[in-house]
Design a binder for these strands. Structure first.
Lengths: 141, 141
DNA sequence: TAGATACTTGACTATTTTAGTCAGGTTTAT
DNA sequence: ATAAACCTGACTAAAATAGTCAAGTATCTA
């Protein structure tokens, strides 16, 4: 059970963006250098974040990205959703042949996996970008 | 972020085992048929469960497996640990080059990933095999 | 208006992980 | 003896991951 780097990078990049987002947009190049993430990969990630209206792009020289909503209103769940990072415990939902159906004792653990998914998703729904930044500042002090 | 089938199957198989474990050991063949999991794959999984002393094997005809501890004392975390299903959010811990170190703004989200891991692991530490069986029986009634 | 900076898009690919299979054992009840 | 069941290690196809690469377009600044 692991988080993919796409989801992790997306969060890292947005925290970076939120912290350095004073007046000017932040370029991916800067984020790439600061966070050690390949520029090309960041571009893929930000393309998705833009489509989900989490960031706005500013083209041209001195361009970059800015947050499209307040940090408080961007939850982890929005970010993960944008980059297709999903919590999947089981195939049952998509593929009815595998998993549950047609077995004599049915899916004895079906309920467990639902609970687990909810447990994890709750965490993602509660945490906002603002929480992360605050948390980080507090730790420095 | 997804659960692998090895972890899922291990739990499914153990719930099955616990339910059908009256006096006699339960054969993998039966579990395989009831849960729709390949026998060869189950053997791999049970080999690991045995090494971690979660189950005991009974060889020979009429053999099979029995739980090595009370269902109450087998937590999900023990099961996942046995089959190498780990919660990993980040590489920092193993590979110091990637992730945190040497970056100018350090790992802004390091704390987040730790929190996430703990959140998930707590779930696994609290749930026992007994909980799963009880839960299942209640639902039938 | 030339050139640099930075966003935009889509195709491509090496590596790793997953989810098994397969083959050949050993043990023990009947 | 023999069949049922455990035991072990090697192997592999397919999928997912984690990117790279190439060829743009838009906009600011000198």
């Amino acid at each position: 059970m692991k988080l993919t780097s796409k989801g992790r990078y997306a969060v890292m990049a947005l925290v970076d963006l939120a912290r350095f987002n004073n007046i000017n947009p932040v370029s991916l190049r800067d984020i790439s250098l600061r966070q050690g993430i390949s520029l090309d990969y960041l571009e893929q990630i930000f393309s998705k974040l833009r489509k989900k209206e989490i960031v706005q792009s500013v083209r041209g020289t001195q361009g970059g990205y800015i947050l499209n909503r307040k940090a408080k209103e961007i939850k982890l769940t929005n970010i993960f959703d944008a980059v297709d990072e999903k919590v999947k415990t089981v195939q049952c939902k998509k593929d009815s042949k595998k998993g549950c159906n047609g077995r004599s004792t049915k899916c004895l653990t079906h309920n467990l996996w639902d609970e687990l998914e909810n447990h994890i998703n709750n965490f993602f729904e509660e945490k906002s970008l603002e929480d992360l930044i605050k948390d980080n500042i507090e730790r420095r002090v």
